[in-house]
């Protein structure tokens, strides 16, 4: 169970980090970097999430014989 929990904390960590960096960027006046950073964050979290969901789908497919 531990790898899943680590994954959850990793995603939340990335989210909070992006949040902080965006605030810094906004103060520094570089809003375009803030937006780019948000997109990069979404892509990273998406990749991590997709891996977990893919494992889940494989497990369900194996169990239910879909």
């Amino acid at each position: 169970m531990m790898p899943e929990v680590d994954l959850i904390f990793k995603i939340a960590g990335v989210g909070v980090l992006i949040l902080l960096l965006n605030i810094l960027f906004k103060q520094a006046g570089k809003d375009e970097y803030a937006y780019i950073l948000t997109l990069v964050g979404v892509v990273v979290v998406f990749i991590v999430a997709i891996q977990m969901i893919q494992r889940f789908f494989q497990e369900v497919r194996a169990v239910f014989g879909l």
Partner: peptide, 28 residues
């Protein structure tokens, strides 16, 4: 809820991952 305030997409992704993590164990 912490992430939903600023970034809704993170909240959606995180809820999907948590759902998948819990169900992964249950389906076993």
């Amino acid at each position: 809820t912490l992430l939903r305030r600023e970034y809704k997409e993170y909240a959606v992704l995180l809820s999907a991952v948590v759902g998948a993590a819990i169900m992964l164990r249950l389906v076993g």
